[in-house]
Design a protein around this nucleic acid. Structure first.
Lengths: 211, 211
DNA sequence: GCATATCTCTAACGGTCGCTATACAATTGC
DNA sequence: GCAATTGTATAGCGACCGTTAGAGATATGC
């Protein structure tokens, strides 16, 4: 067994708590004092377990994406139909962003919206990860278009950017206090922009999703 | 004439500069040092002219809403047709959020997304102003519904919340580096959710905007 | 028991935060 | 000219920032 005085707290529990604080206040506005008081541990213990604030945030982010935020990848991977995947994505986001037992909105979207110049790299990292997510949606749409599920002239990039924007808007609305049903209605409205299968690419209603 | 040593800078120019800094970094992440170096004036001059950081922000916010952000109110007030008003609102937002000579996105939407507990009142104020904006859209939709411009069963609150979310999503996308054309395509896609005039309230395509 | 290893606590580091006292500069009124 | 008034520059306030040294606590190995 490992020698020395054992840690007085559960590391994963602390990481969970830190995730919640970062989720609520974002990277810059979360101070070490806020973290230590929320976790009930001293600063030296926190530093011994997680190196420093930046590393702790990145680990919390990673954990978030593998748990609370994993529904996005799952929806896109598990649904074979692209429209069903996006619908599930939006509906699960409506639920995930408004859960009463968790901070509202999405950590990936909100945690580094306002940041000082010295944490610009954190903001850049989150932006990059959001771009990966948007790209995953776009790839799904491209594949569906090739499979004939969508009109041949579908502008996958524009459509993916639209749904990425809707997710960001839903996160913002959740933070502004929107109810789960409000978010669900946003999701339903956004699905109206999905190009109809009957479209031949000249249909005005599907305009923005075509070139 | 006014006695004493004259101010060495133009107050309104300084306010303009401060607006840009707050717009870029948000309230909390904007330090006095960042402001004074950007404006080229000393801290005592800034405090003499604007009281303190909070008052300066609120004044910059007020100025922003009367200038850069005024297009929202204008679009809703000047267009008699609700659909035309929302379309103009979204298109002007696409342009306003991506102007190369200004910070990207919307100050009202982004300036207090991440904030420490001690600036919670600033965040609350911005949230309140956003709610007023959403309410203005909702009122426009209610009036249009009464005028027969929209189906009688139109859910004005849901539709207004959707477009408020789209604006927030467009602002986020602009901050993430989306091009003006990307934002325009988001606007076009969002307009697909507008209930068709021919709808009788049982049309599935207009579902989310009806009760 | 004792050495060793690891964690926790108190206290404090240098740096930056928002903000301001004080001294000096520049103007008007007379 | 000189008093009065107001802005600017330097320098520093107390508070908090992220972070860590040093001392004490608590486990294992033998």
């Amino acid at each position: 067994m490992r020698t020395g005085r054992p840690r007085s707290f559960d590391r994963d529990e602390a990481l969970e708590g830190a995730t919640a604080v970062f989720w609520e206040h974002g990277y810059d506005a979360t101070s070490i004092a806020l973290l230590t008081s929320a976790l009930g541990i001293g600063a030296p213990s926190l530093y011994a377990a997680f190196s420093d604030k930046r590393a702790l945030f990145l680990e919390a982010l990673d954990r978030y994406l593998r748990t609370y935020g994993a529904f996005t990848e799952r929806a896109l991977a598990e649904e074979s139909n692209a429209r069903a995947a996006v619908e599930r994505l939006l509906r699960e986001a409506a639920a995930a962003y408004s859960r009463p037992d968790r901070p509202r909105g999405c950590l990936l979207i909100t945690a580094a919206t306002n940041c000082s110049p010295q944490s610009a790299d954190i903001a850049a990292r989150l932006r990059e990860l959001r771009a990966v997510g948007a790209r995953t949606i776009e790839d799904k749409i491209v594949a569906a278009t090739r499979a004939g599920e969508l009109p041949a002239h579908t502008d996958a990039h524009a459509l993916a950017t639209f749904y990425a924007a809707v997710l960001q808007g839903m996160s913002a609305q959740a933070r502004d206090g929107a109810a789960k049903t409000d978010l669900e209605r946003i999701a339903e409205a956004a699905l109206q922009a999905w190009p109809s299968a009957a479209s031949d690419g000249t249909d005005d209603r599907a305009g923005p999703a075509h070139k």
